[in-house]
Design a protein around this nucleic acid. Structure first.
Lengths: 271, 271
DNA sequence: CGCCCAATTGAGCTTCCTCAAAGCTCGTGG
DNA sequence: CCACGAGCTTTGAGGAAGCTCAATTGGGCG
């Protein structure tokens, strides 16, 4: 009993970095945006160059650092290169809602394109490295590379659909279901960069943070994870959660597997 | 006591159409997309023509009609011209979550650009008229009118931020807060087309539908609205809800007023 | 060694849900 | 013109899920 579910966050990310260090370092440095877009279409020389030119420097933040505040009047746009980031909103009563988690390849802060005041706070969940995007050059991309612009638009839909799924989870899911959904989502995310992952998650989240993400109390998160454990759906040990029965987890989470099968026939030709 | 909160839906939309008929008819027919985009920038001749050419016919649906099913393999993209539409997801246990409501000027079905299977069901909440968009021509717009494409991208952020707000409402809001948020949102929406609106809402939603939107039971929606009534926040009569104290409603809803103040300095020049 | 943060556990309570039964309003058919 | 049926709303009673408050444990770090 003792020793289970010791998910001390600093340990968690350090463990993450440790176990993945080799791969991550290998992946880094490359153009994140190009890597992301390249998942869907074959980029030509010009397009690749354009994507590189949009990135305007790199920055690192330590766990807990604020990349953008709800109060602030907007700011930069980022692409996550390494580590985890989350977007959250603070309520009057001090409670917090985590809107979404982001990892390598995700675009963050796009709401700055439309709103003067940022809708959410962006925080580093682990130590992170991000590339900073230049708004004007992003605009230029729309002019010079319509195909990339259209693809960016499509990629954004993925993010929107994720929000949709989370909305259903929070609106209609039980505590069990919400946490199962979160775990499945994180596992899917890890498999994007590590397809061989067998369901072992070095959880980058504190139980309190899991609660903030699922709309639950830290206390209830604890009890619920114990329930998942006792039901044989997951196993926990020293900050690692292992998904034992993903099919059953998916059922309790009302999970829909979203294949990112892009229908890109409508894209304009490359330039 | 009797007679309060008689929000029979068919009555509701008919009432809506009745009280607004003149204005809506005046607004209709014009190019919805151009109208929407024109809120933010001054369109030139070519751009206006391009937006018109994207619309490919008009269709009407009766209340309750399904415009797209979660099962279906994607389909059309719409712009709402008149009436209300909602997007929802059905859970295993038969419960439903309404993801969002849409009215005039909203773009619907864009997820078809990225996913082979539709993530949600699109249903007519009232009798509606929609314009159908042509995917290929939308793609063409990215090539021919980068400024419009970029603006479309920015407009999409508004939708994303709305989902964010709803997520917070469902995750951290009480029943009182969730319903207050919904009412405030609908009122804001009505004021987009009718700035003089004083807070009287001809509710297009059944209490059951309100429950589906807020993640509550129809029964609890009823009790909660009575509570809002008794606390003097709203008044109900014959299918009309009047917001009596929007400041206090906003506080209980943890509502953030989102000014759509676009920062459009990054847009590429018009063509 | 002592501190701090996070996980864990217990007890009591609130909020929201479920099940069930009326009551209203409107549209329909006789 | 009236009775009836359908669809929503309203209300009551009891139960379950999740919350709050409070205390304890464990582990890493200074």
């Amino acid at each position: 009993m003792a020793g289970l579910m010791r998910v001390k966050a600093p340990v968690a990310w350090r463990g993450l970095e440790h176990s993945h260090r080799g791969r991550i370092l290998r992946e880094m440095g490359g153009n994140c945006l190009a890597e992301r877009f390249g998942r869907h279409i074959e980029l030509n020389e010009h397009e690749r160059a354009a994507l590189t030119s949009i990135e305007d420097g790199e920055r690192r933040f330590r766990r807990g650092a604020t990349l953008r505040s709800e109060q602030g009047d907007g700011g930069d746009i980022f692409v996550v290169e390494q580590g985890w980031i989350f977007c959250s909103v603070l309520c009057e009563d001090g409670r917090r809602q985590i809107i979404r988690l982001h990892s390598r390849g995700d675009l963050i802060g796009l709401d700055d394109l439309a709103f003067a005041v940022a809708p959410d706070t962006i925080t580093a969940l682990t130590d992170v490295t991000v590339a900073i995007l230049d708004k004007a050059r992003l605009g230029q991309m729309f002019a010079d590379h319509p195909r990339l612009a259209a693809l960016l638009f499509a990629v954004m839909q993925v993010d929107r659909v994720m929000l949709t799924d989370r909305l259903v989870s929070l609106g209609r899911g039980s505590a069990l279901g919400r946490i199962a959904a979160l775990l499945l989502w994180i596992a899917a995310r890890l498999r994007l960069t590590d397809p061989a992952n067998d369901g072992a998650i070095t959880l980058p989240l504190t139980q309190e943070e899991i609660g903030d993400a699922t709309g639950l109390t830290a206390v209830h998160v604890n009890r619920t994870m114990r329930a998942l454990d006792e039901q044989g759906l997951i196993a926990r040990s020293g900050g690692i959660v292992r998904l034992l029965d993903e099919a059953r987890l998916a059922r309790t989470a009302n999970h829909v597997r979203r294949e990112e099968k892009f229908d890109l026939g409508w894209l304009p030709p490359a330039r």
